[in-house]
Design a protein around this nucleic acid. Structure first.
Lengths: 252, 252
DNA sequence: CGTCGTAGTATCTATGACGATACAACGCCG
DNA sequence: CGGCGTTGTATCGTCATAGATACTACGACG
């Protein structure tokens, strides 16, 4: 099952939500200086396009300066507000794109302590601090690979002096290199590996992926087999509830 | 202009993209044990619902076990694949939700060095390593607040031993407390504040927001005025291009 | 062997979004 | 003062999505 994470960014103002199509419209208007030219360039009808601009303006404010008559017949120019709206959207899109592309490591566990939206989740690699939805007991914790920090175990920062709440030892398992970005897969050390108490075979890979720069890979001299400390913030780890776990305790 | 960041999560498999509505459908089926009951509960028509299930199954595989006839007339049950699809979606949604809710700090600057998708951006607070789209020169760098790590300046980790590429000194400006999560706003120190060379007044707030746990706030003894080091990974900083900057160099 | 509640399928219709088209309003310019 | 190219507005047709409805197929159970 080859699943691809997708999304469609939107900005919601007052009642209207502007989507990518609207932003492309603004871009075309900005580029061509008139709504007719923009409509032609986009292969859209002028009427709809004009209506949409008015709709957005009713919620957002003046995003265009539209003139009819005059030299050249008039024209339409984006205002600063309009440009700001574009930039807002681009930033939002970039953020979401980051999430959709960064792989995610998943660990399952059960919620122990909880304070508000934050909780400690017991997993096979030890306790994990994460954001947990209300009332969840059995959860999957997702850790975004662009939020994982790798450090040299010899000079690991004092955990009391940073806001990095989650720290795990592990060994580098795999390194996949891109242009400037490298994806490092770390096999986490299981907690109490010799404990016969907990009969949880947990077939979880217990792998943690980290997206770091190639330069960092070199500085840390990372290579398969090397020991590292992987840390991430509690606010970058998000849990989702699992209803029935692996059990089919329904419809007996 | 009160803008709210929104999004709609989607999972794309083969040709079809399943959205939140599909997932809600699966949930209802799982809960009620039959597609008719699910359709009623959702206020949707059975026909469309049934068609949709088949469509998704053609791409994803068997997500339901549908039986007709038999005791009770039959029924529909989610398969493990179906449940897995649900969980995948929930995780994806949780990630995107994190992005939409975490505030973002924005710094503008110009691209200097670049290696692949990674580049150094010169800003008023110094160089920032970030992911930069191709061909961009003048950019806005967005830094997600849940990716910013705060550390005590006295015991700041050796930058050569971690994969945290961006480090900035600053002073705590504001602390907004939630239940368990605290938002800390850090005023970054400007680079070369006495330099008369660079006539860039840059009205940027040059503020960096960090989302950290309340416990971390206590351990670091954070309070307004206190000096801290704020760090974040290059892979967590994303730049978007600015076309004309503040200048209106078009349509003379 | 008929009943019942489900799955499966086909057809019609309502709705909304959008393109296509036509026409009025505007204002500078030759 | 008429022409031109724009904005603004109204109307119609088209298309896709989805609800409504009606019907068949299925299979355990009384």
């Amino acid at each position: 099952m080859r699943v691809e994470k997708t999304y469609s960014p939107k900005l919601s103002v007052d009642g209207v939500t502007v989507d990518r199509r609207d932003i492309e419209m603004l871009e075309a208007i900005d580029e061509h200086g008139s709504m007719h030219a923009a409509a032609d360039a986009l292969g859209r009808s002028y009427a709809r396009l004009q209506n949409r601009v008015v709709e957005i303006e009713e919620a957002v404010g003046t995003i265009t300066e539209r003139k009819r008559g005059g030299s050249g017949g008039g024209g339409t120019v984006l205002t600063d507000t309009g440009r700001e709206l574009r930039r807002r959207f681009e930033r939002h899109d970039a953020e979401l794109d980051g999430v959709a592309r960064a792989t995610e490591s998943v660990v399952t566990g059960t919620v122990r302590d909880r304070t508000g939206e934050l909780a400690t989740v017991d997993t096979s690699v030890g306790p994990v601090m994460a954001l947990v939805p209300e009332g969840a007991e059995r959860v999957q914790v997702g850790i975004r690979s662009d939020a994982v920090v790798l450090t040299d175990p010899s000079e690991a920062p004092d955990p009391d002096r940073t806001s990095l709440r989650n720290r795990f030892r592990g060994t580098v398992e795999r390194i996949e290199s891109g242009d400037a970005i490298v994806r490092v897969t770390v096999a986490l050390a299981l907690e109490g590996a010799d404990a016969g108490d907990d009969p949880d075979p947990d077939p979880d890979p217990v792998e943690l992926q980290a997206l770091i720069t190639r330069a960092s890979t070199d500085r840390l001299a990372l290579e398969p087999g090397r020991e590292v400390v992987a840390s991430f913030k509690a606010t970058a780890a998000r849990a989702t509830r699992i209803d029935a776990g692996g059990d089919e305790s329904e419809r007996a």
